[in-house]
Every structure is written in structure tokens, then in C-alpha cells.
Simulated scan of single mutants.
Amino acid sequence: MGAALGSALKPAAGAVIWAAAGRSNATSKRAELADLVGVPDLASLAQRSDVIVSICPPHAAVEVAEQVAEALGDRPDRPVYVDANAVSPDTVRRVGTVLGAEHVVDGAVIGPPAWEAGHTVLLLSGAAAGAVAGLLRGSPFEARVLGTELGTASALKACYAMQSKAMPAVWLAVAAAARGYGVQDALGDLLARDGVDLTAVLDKLEAQAGPKAWRWVGEMEEAADTVAAVGVPDGFSRSAAEMYRRMAQERGTGS
């Protein structure tokens, strides 16, 4: 996603840099193919950038913001910081506390890495949301400004993720319980009468979620925090987080 966003920003920015220290060969290759310029570390990036985009696992969002704040030091012309992570409104407001709310834009991506138009939306809110949307005009990302309040974009992303990630996780729980009681085949037969191919459903979910299950854990926890903050039961997302945690453990993957 970072490579795709960087590529989308190039026409307006001219040059897009990224912090290369400690990143994998695969990440470096994606950045190279997107024609992004690697700099040694986050400090170099922070001092040279007019706009900084954070794309990281949800649990690291605040830590990355703190590292950027430290790297900026006493730089007088503060860059715009786009937190484009799948976090709760409270988390993005914490980022605003770290970097100054007036400099932070709440961003949320709906869809896959965008290399062609029509598939991916970037939700934006915050004081500088309109300016960031302008940088992406004509790019494969459809930028939608939701207002000036931090947390609005993240709230919408969390609600969307409830149906795109929490609801499918019910099938993981159903299948796990059926296996535990030794009735998975019988369950599959019953579901087939209703037009549901359980094996196909699970195979599709494995293909979609499997490689990213460890990352979806954090997203579901943040979604749970989001709904809980407005008095909505958060058990759906907490349970989804646990099912994806188990999936990641079975695959031997993690952050």
C-alpha cells in the first residue's frame, strides 16, 4: 500500500522518499518499482518532507508518530502528517496530540493498493484534508474529504471493516466449533442445502486473510475500540481479532 500511495503522489510531489532502514528486500523492491527514493532513516525523511504518510501495522501507529516527532525536533515548518493506518478515532487523536492536531490528517484506505482507478478510496479528515486530497487528484486513489475533525475517517473505516473483516470471521468460528465436535462434514451437508459451500467459503477467506491475518488482529482490536467508544457492543470485533490471531499462529506468521 505504501508503494502504491507513493506512486500516486509522485505527479504532484515530484519526488517521494521513504525510510529504508530495516525494511525487507521485498519492500525495497516494491519501492524501487514505484520509483521512490530511499533515505537512510526516519530522521532524514522527517527533515526533508513536506507531507509524511504513515502506513504501518495498527499497533505501531502511535510509536511511529512519536519517532517522527522526535526526528522533527525544532523544525519550524512542520510537515503535514497523514496517518493512513487502520486505527480507532482515539488512536488518531493521540497521534494528533503527539504531532499537533493542526498538522495531522486522518486517513483510511478502503480497497487494495491502487495502481488503476476505480478500486480504492482514501478517506480523509482533518484541517489539511483538502490539501492532501488535492495532491491525489487524478491518481488511482479516489480521495474523499469527510470534514475537518480527526477521527472521522478512521471511524468510517472501522465501521466498514466490521462487515468486511469481522463478519467473515464468523465462518472461522463456525468451522472451528464444528471441527471440535467432529461435525464439520455434517455441517457442510446442511449448509449445502441452503446453497452455502462451506469449503469454498473457508478457502476464499484463507486466500484473502491468511497472509495478512496477523495485521487484521490489530485492525479488529481498533475497530472494537471504535464501536465501544459510542456504546456499541465490541464483542464482534474482539472475537474476529481472536480468530485471525489463531489463523496467524497456525500459519506461523506475525508482526
Rank of each mutant, 00 (worst) to 15 (best):
A176C: 02
V201D: 05
E142Q: 14
E66G: 13
A209V: 13
S255K: 00
D225V: 06
E142H: 09
A86R: 08
A21P: 01
D83A: 12
G96D: 07
A61T: 14
G195C: 03
D35W: 01
G111K: 01
E32N: 13
G73S: 07
Q163A: 13
S28E: 12
L187K: 00
R137P: 07
D35N: 14
A4I: 11
C56P: 00
L122I: 11
L42H: 05
V201N: 02
P233T: 01
L136K: 11
D83G: 06
A61K: 02
S49Q: 06
A61E: 05
V98E: 08
A241W: 05
A4F: 08
G252A: 02
A34Y: 10
D189S: 11
D234P: 06
P140L: 01
T27N: 08
E206A: 14
P113Q: 09
A3G: 15
A176P: 02
P89Q: 05
V121R: 12
G151N: 08
A131I: 11
V230K: 03
D185W: 03
F236N: 13
A61S: 15
K157N: 10
G126A: 06
A176T: 12
H103L: 05
Q47Y: 04
D83I: 00
G96M: 05
L198Y: 04
R238C: 07
P57R: 01
D77A: 13
A46K: 01
D225C: 03
A207I: 04
S54H: 10
Q47R: 10
E70Y: 03
T97V: 08
I17T: 15
R215Q: 12
A31C: 15
S239I: 06
A13Q: 07
A161P: 06
A131N: 11
E149Y: 03
A15M: 06
L146Q: 12
R75G: 03
A114T: 04
R30D: 14
E102A: 15
F141T: 11
Q184K: 09
V80Q: 10
S125G: 12
A71E: 01
T199Q: 13
S28M: 01
V132R: 09
A153P: 09
G195I: 02
A129I: 09
D189P: 04
L198E: 00
A178M: 03
S44Q: 07
L135A: 12
L33T: 15
D234M: 03
L72H: 08
M243T: 13
G38M: 08
A229F: 04
Y181L: 15
M1E: 12
P79F: 00
P89R: 03
S154N: 11
V98Y: 02
S239D: 11
G118N: 04
P140V: 02
A223Y: 00
A173T: 10
A71R: 03
R137Y: 01
L42W: 01
G231M: 04
W214A: 15
S24W: 07
V37I: 15
E242T: 13
K204Y: 11
A248S: 13
V109G: 07
